[in-house]
């Protein structure tokens, strides 16, 4: 059993929690960072903490962290008692394309939640990991970032930026002993997609994402499609000539 520690940014999300459960089951101690964690009102986050501790007999700690509150980022990282071996960023916001098109405020929230926040916290973490000389940073991006489509280009463009950021970070840290993984889950049955009618065969469960991340960590994979079929789908979508693509409804 490989033991170590894991930090989950976005520790309230279904994917973040699945990753926490999976690594805890391997003996990892867990740090969950989430918004509104410090207001004692939130029983659910603490229920998750006791749940993971009881199931796997590992320590779980909870930290207040708001990725959009840029100024608090460094303080949050400084206050962590230990720098985890692996950090997984599961922060994201799907938004509603049609509403976001007409509202700058909600567009800003989607763009910041999917690009600015996750990229900035990794900017700081990368330096800490680089200085330490080992560790793995895992960013959960999206296949939506591979080509802009009418139905979700605001979310997709932010994810695209995040994927590019991760790619550059990987390039920079590859010689420094720090590994960076880009995860492209495709559809995931989670709170984010609740109520959407997702095709079963293209949809991963949060636990599938967690298992894919674990494998990617041990095998030092760079870009991971949780469901391999998405790699094929995106290959096709990327290669449709723009003249045709702009007329398609996909």
């Amino acid at each position: 059993m490989k033991k170590g520690s894991l930090l989950v940014l976005g520790g309230r999300s279904d994917m973040g929690l699945a990753v926490a459960h999976h690594f805890a089951s391997l003996g990892f101690s867990i740090q969950l960072a989430a918004r509104k964690a410090s207001s004692g009102k939130d029983k659910i986050l603490y229920a998750h903490k006791s749940d993971i501790e009881l199931r796997y007999n590992v320590p779980v700690s909870i930290f207040e962290f708001d990725a959009l509150d840029v100024r608090s980022c460094q303080r949050f990282l400084d206050n962590l008692p230990t720098l985890a071996d692996i950090t997984v960023c599961a922060i994201g916001l799907l938004g509603e394309q049609q509403r976001d098109e007409r509202s700058l405020a909600s567009s800003i929230e989607v763009m910041r939640s999917n690009y600015e926040g996750p990229a900035l916290v990794f900017t700081l973490l990368a330096n800490m990991y680089e200085e330490r000389g080992h560790g793995t940073l895992v960013g959960i991006s999206s296949v939506a970032g591979e080509r802009g489509r009418a139905s979700n280009y605001i979310y997709g463009s932010a994810k695209s930026g995040y994927s590019n950021f991760l790619s550059g970070l990987r390039n920079r840290l590859a010689k420094k002993g720090v590994h960076v993984i880009t995860v492209l889950p495709g559809f995931v049955a989670s709170k984010m997609t609740e109520g959407l009618n997702l095709p079963v065969r293209l949809t991963a469960q949060p636990m599938d994402v967690a298992i894919a991340i674990e494998r990617a960590v041990w095998r030092k994979r760079n870009i991971v499609y949780v469901k391999p079929i998405w790699q094929l789908i995106m290959l096709i979508i990327r290669n449709i000539p723009e003249g045709i693509f702009k007329k398609l409804k996909i």
Partner: peptide, 13 residues
Amino acid sequence: NRMLSFSARTGEL
């Protein structure tokens, strides 16, 4: 589906 507390003294979960 969360486990909330356990007492190893009484076995109460």
